[in-house]
Design a protein around this nucleic acid. Structure first.
Length: 471
RNA sequence: GCCCCCAUCGUCUAGCGGCCUAGGACACCACCCUCUCAAGGUGGACGCACGGGUUCAAAUCCCGUUGGGGGUGCCA
């Protein structure tokens, strides 16, 4: 019985949904843990009661589950460990590493401005020997000289002059601990070995290190700061600015396998250049030291391509199963008109055409709707500008389809005899029929679609469209 | 302002001193295939930010410049 050599944690704060950046951080932690045979634990950083929204915690868990990032043990809620954090504050106060401060935020800011605008606390209360009191906070006494540095697995040595670190608050005036402190204490208590997180947290690292030192925390924490995922303006992804919650991608019909695979290529590339591959291989090939240092743009186009590949890789039954949600909720047709058996016939044809599952209804709505919904552009181009040909083709189809055998092959023969007789491309000939029956100029293969629709309905739509041309 | 970090095609990356005439992928363009659209195939255009070093040799090492990002809260 030995403790694992590697234990990492993902520590979201429940102030928003899980977004792409958080998902990538969680993924890289998970990959590292799984590859090292270590543990991946969760910690909810909810020390800020004002901002924390407990109802989001479950949504974050469900997003992680959807991604397939399973965690070890029961997630810890930082808010429930307040007693330990408070004890650490006492220790620091007792050993002279921290002190009480009565300065309000306004006072700190005013003095900073008077000093010449340099932000930060000036150490005003350092030697005042204040005790607890209304509006008082506890600040950490940062050493005036020396440097605090650490070896980052991704970035190498990173060091900060202690002089540029201000005496930061570790206990708020409302008596609750700040996250640096909670972080330092919890990482130690949970036996965390590696901290893998976004680069936006790189400058809190010296503070945590100073805290650990002052608390005489045994052992060493190894850090790895991941490059940020950025938007098209190359800024850090923001929940407010950018539309990036994992839940949104679930709703749009992205497959979790595709999302995970794509996320793995942001900041990291497999040595053999094969990007789309099973997760197991990614776990084996992943190396923290190979993670890049510069920000990566989240390219939805490329994600879509990955998603299309994964959709096509599904078996047909799997595709049907995964599509269910988009066939039953917010559909363009009345719920009782949907027929799964009919969909099963069309499914393989749809599967090779969609990039996201939310596109599925658009490929089969013609068969579940009482009438085609005409796309204006398609109608204009094919039925108005090409009215003469459309009328002739429709007449030909009406006659041929009335008697031919109702199979895709026969239907094709019946229609394309027109193309042969008049030496017109098949593409031109199929267009009026397609628009008449499905309402659009693009869609699944035509004759298979007609076969599913049935003779009576096909003839009815053809006739309707023909009269609509004149109307 | 100050601190920290970063810099290979439009984008994500491979490259870790000679194998680079810089490779792959997405996107883009052309052609092929084809009943539309996809998928697939073939081909194409596109990049080492700049300037100094070090070295027989630099995309790779060092310094600087420029550019970008992150932080600078009693948020995390």
């Amino acid at each position: 019985m030995s403790t694992p050599v590697v234990r990492v944690r993902f520590a979201p704060s429940p102030t928003g949904y899980l977004h792409i950046g958080g998902a990538r951080t969680a993924l890289f932690n998970w990959l590292f843990a799984r590859q090292q045979g270590g543990e991946f634990v969760l910690r909810i950083e909810d020390t800020d009661a004002e901002r924390s929204r407990p109802e989001l915690i479950d949504i974050i868990f469900r997003s992680l589950e959807w991604l397939g990032l399973d965690w070890d043990g029961t997630p810890i809620h930082q808010s429930e460990r307040e007693a330990m954090h408070l004890a650490a504050v006492e220790t620091l106060l007792a050993n002279g590493s921290a002190y009480w401060c009565s300065c309000s935020s306004e006072e700190v800011k005013a003095r900073a401005e008077a000093r010449g605008g340099t932000p930060g606390y000036d150490g005003f209360c350092r030697k005042r020997n204040l005790g607890a009191g209304d509006g008082h906070v506890v600040r950490f006494l940062v050493p005036e000289d020396g440097t605090t540095s650490f070896e980052d697995l991704i970035r190498g040595t990173v060091s900060f002059e202690n002089a540029v670190l201000e005496d930061f608050v570790i206990l708020r005036s409302n008596g609750t601990p700040m996250f640096h402190l909670a972080n330092a204490v919890d990482d130690a208590d949970q036996g965390i070995t590696h901290v893998i997180r976004g680069e936006d947290l790189i400058n809190v690292t010296p503070k945590v290190l100073l805290l650990r030192e002052a608390l005489k925390t045994p052992g060493e924490l190894i850090f790895a700061h991941l490059p940020l995922i950025v938007n098209e303006k190359r800024q850090k992804l923001s929940k407010r600015r950018d539309d990036v919650s994992v839940g949104d991608y679930i709703d749009r019909g992205y497959l979790s396998e595709a999302m995970v695979n794509y996320l793995a290529t942001l900041g990291w590339g497999p040595p053999d250049n094969i990007e789309i591959r099973p997760l197991g291989e990614i776990i084996d090939l992943f190396r923290l030291a190979d993670v890049g240092k510069s920000g990566a743009f989240f390219d939805v186009k490329k994600l879509q391509h990955f998603n299309g590949e994964y959709i096509r890789k599904l078996s047909v039954p799997q595709f049907i199963d995964r599509s269910t949600r988009w066939l039953n909720v917010d559909t363009p047709w009345e719920a009782d008109r949907f027929d799964i058996e009919t969909f099963k016939v069309l499914a393989p044809l749809v599967q090779e055409r969609v990039k996201v599952l939310s596109e599925v209804p658009g490929y089969v709505d013609f068969v579940f709707s009482p009438d085609p919904v005409f796309d204006e552009d398609s109608w204009q181009k094919v039925m108005v500008k090409g009215a003469d040909l459309a009328t002739a083709v429709l007449d030909h189809a009406l006659a041929g389809f009335a008697e031919c055998e109702w199979t895709a092959a026969s239907l094709e023969g019946a229609l394309f005899s027109y193309a042969d007789e008049h030496e017109i491309s098949k593409g031109k000939v199929q267009a009026p029929v397609r628009v008449s029956v499905t309402g659009r100029s693009v869609g699944p293969p035509l004759f298979e679609s007609l076969e599913v629709l049935g003779r009576d309905e096909t003839l009815r739509r053809l006739a309707n469209a023909k009269s609509r041309i004149r109307g």
